[in-house]
């Protein structure tokens, strides 16, 4: 399975990628991943490629990704060419326009146009406002864990929920309770979107 994780520098995209990669590793799967690095914490686009299986090259080729997980809607569109037809896109709905784009007089596009292009790819699109969910839960952070929860609940990532929850507890023992809340909120979002 090929997964693209994307977002804006500073959103923790690479950390989320490492977490999912290590979940695969701890579940006994063969994995390889690549990150764009260097200037990525300066508000630029960040793409993390994660391959689970026997391929040896660390980058996913265009048209070969099963899933895109994005911290920002425009960034989901930016990597859409990596997605297989009928793949899955999970994106945070909070929009960020680069200050350089602002300087050049650009406006953020109509978000519904972005969603339409993604759905017409064709792709199955799941949208959620992770920031709002975190505020509703009244916890300081965990937006990426909400995204992870949605991804887990899709059922295409063949790992056990126990493994994932145990890893999250071990990795950040002090924040275990809040982090699991965020993960579970992701589960619930997907359940709601599927029922609707």
């Amino acid at each position: 399975m090929n997964i693209i994780i994307t977002g804006v520098g500073g959103q923790g995209t690479v950390s989320l990628g490492h977490l999912i990669g290590n979940i695969a590793h701890n579940s006994g799967l063969r994995m390889i991943a690549a990150e764009t690095h260097g200037m990525s914490q300066r508000g630029g686009s960040v793409i993390f490629h994660l391959k689970i299986g026997d391929e040896r090259s660390p980058l996913i080729a265009k048209g070969q990704a099963d899933v895109i997980i994005s911290g920002e809607p425009m960034e989901a569109l930016r990597v859409l060419e990596f997605l297989k037809p009928n793949g899955v896109v999970i994106t945070n709905t909070h929009t960020i326009l680069s200050p350089v784009a602002v300087q050049l007089g650009m406006n953020y596009p109509d978000i519904l146009d972005i969603y339409r292009v993604i759905e017409e790819w064709p792709a199955k699109l799941y949208t959620l406002n992770t920031g709002e969910i975190i505020r509703r839960l009244d916890i300081p952070r965990g937006e990426n864990l909400v995204l992870l929860g949605v991804f887990m609940k899709l059922g295409i990532f063949q790992v056990s929920a126990d493994t994932v929850e145990q890893m999250i507890i071990n990795r950040w023992p002090k924040f275990a309770e809040n982090n699991l809340k965020a993960l579970h909120a992701g589960y619930d979002v997907l359940s709601e979107q599927i029922t609707n």
Binding site: G44, E75, S98, V100, A101
Partner: peptide
């Protein structure tokens, strides 16, 4: 629809 996003 894609607006530039260089590092800043």
């Amino acid at each position: 629809l894609l607006k530039i996003r260089p590092p800043v």
